[in-house]
Design a protein around this nucleic acid. Structure first.
Lengths: 107, 107
DNA sequence: ACCATATGTCGGAGAATCCCGACGCGTCAA
DNA sequence: TTGACGCGTCGGGATTCTCCGACATATGGT
């Protein structure tokens, strides 16, 4: 059997290179060699990371001549955001308690 | 060398079992056997997932007699939320454009 | 037509992940 | 004290991930 690239958003985000790629694409579409430049990685490695992002629908490719510009597709990130949302309450509450405590100690 | 458990939050969240565990803990602290009950997994497997969550500081253990109750510690999730935040704008904008388009077509 | 450029994909090596049964240790009940 | 229970961790097998060099394909320029 072949590679079996992960297709889910959480797995796609679990790798720091892929997160960096998405951050870069926030500033606009970029070609593969351009994207690969910022990593100490072979170009094929970056290309495979882009494939993972493609399968997770986090990027879209637009051919321009012999280059391929990759665009950010942020929608699937909403799934992560939605998963996170029920937890938000907890860490915010905890922060508030901490702030109240600090206020008490330094009035 | 030994296991080398991942310690970063994104990796911890990349596994569906671990996400389920965190969801369960939202409803309050629970013991390991209790948590393991909801999975078609051996107890040691669940125990190791809990170890990953522990290393990512997403849970905390409280010994009670011969049981260990695990508590949710949501704070590290803020890192994911913060990473996500600069992207939020993109998918919301896209949704707004879509909604505007639909409004145009069905006035 | 020919060659350089830009990129995808393949084969495979090495590491990490995921899972299990076995075992060990501490705690509780009899 | 003895035995059962709850849990962590170890050893190891199977799978997946990450990466690389090599190769294939397509486009553009000469």
């Amino acid at each position: 059997m072949v590679a079996a690239v992960p297709t889910d958003v959480f797995s796609a985000l679990s790798n720091p290179v892929r997160r960096k790629l998405l951050e870069s694409l926030r500033e606009g579409p970029r070609a593969v060699n351009d994207l690969a430049g910022q990593f100490a990685l072979s170009r094929p490695a970056v290309s495979e990371h882009l494939q993972v992002l493609r399968h997770a629908h986090l990027v879209r490719e637009e051919p321009r001549g012999r280059q391929r510009y990759y665009h950010l597709v942020a929608e699937p990130l909403a799934e992560v955001h939605d998963w996170l949302h029920p937890f938000e309450h907890y860490w915010r509450e905890r922060m508030r308690s901490l702030r109240d405590l600090l206020d008490e100690e330094n009035p």
